[in-house]
């Protein structure tokens, strides 16, 4: 990896991080952040879909007619998401059921479309791959930092109901049920944005 690739990675991963910089694409994935294991699976799907569709869009960039490129991009993304959905159904049917409609909603996630349109459609394959990977990972980082506090405070565990379940808080701890219900995700995301923006503003990194 040369320095320009590293720069692409860093830009997509942190500098232009889709969630707290642009507040994009929180729709379809916020709902699965109540359990860490669901979030991890969702993250894998999201990174997979972003990388693969960035690569495909980039490969086809010279043969796609400009006027219908949006439609082509949506179809490419949908194809990869369907593939991921089928893999989930085959290998982890329980989690597939728990995620339900949200796997399909990866298609309408603005981030994948945004990367395809803003970067992959006008760049070579390898940089597009790096960019897709970095945006996917940057997004996953945010989701995980929402999911981990939610599950710990709400259930007192990590990786609940799996073979590697870790109980972190004792029985005597009163569980914050609200954290694993709908409002918890809103509050956690707001706090996260607050902390990160406050921090970057102090260090003078933020130019908004």
């Amino acid at each position: 990896m040369c320095s320009s690739d590293l720069k692409i990675f860093w830009n997509a991963f942190w500098v232009d991080n889709p969630v707290f910089r642009q507040i994009l694409g929180i729709c379809s994935t916020l709902a699965v952040t109540n359990l860490v294991i669901n979030t991890v699976i969702m993250d894998i799907g999201l990174v997979f879909a972003t990388v693969m569709s960035s690569v495909t869009v980039s490969l086809l960039r010279n043969v796609t007619p400009r006027r219908i490129r949006m439609m082509v991009q949506v179809l490419i993304i949908a194809a990869w998401v369907i593939l991921f959905d089928l893999m989930l159904k085959a290998y982890v049917p329980d989690i597939s059921k728990a995620l339900g409609a949200y796997v399909g909603l990866i298609i309408t996630n603005c981030i994948i479309m945004g990367r395809a349109e803003a970067f992959a459609s006008s760049n070579k394959v390898f940089p597009a791959l790096i960019d897709g990977l970095a945006s996917g990972l940057g997004y996953s980082l945010i989701l995980l930092s929402i999911a981990i506090p939610r599950e710990i405070l709400g259930f007192g565990t990590l990786f609940k109901d799996t073979a590697i379940q870790i109980t972190l808080l004792p029985e005597s701890f009163t569980k914050w049920i609200i954290m694993v219900m709908a409002p918890g995700a809103f509050f956690m995301l707001a706090i996260l944005i607050w902390v990160i923006r406050g921090w970057t503003e102090r260090t003078g990194e933020d130019k908004h």
């Binding site: 507040i23 609200i178 409002p183 809103f186 509050f187 707001a190 923006r197």
Partner: peptide, 19 residues
Amino acid sequence: PAPLAGAGIALIIAGIMSL
């Protein structure tokens, strides 16, 4: 508070509405 303005406060309001 400045870092919370815009999206941050909107999310907190959404959380309260959700409650």
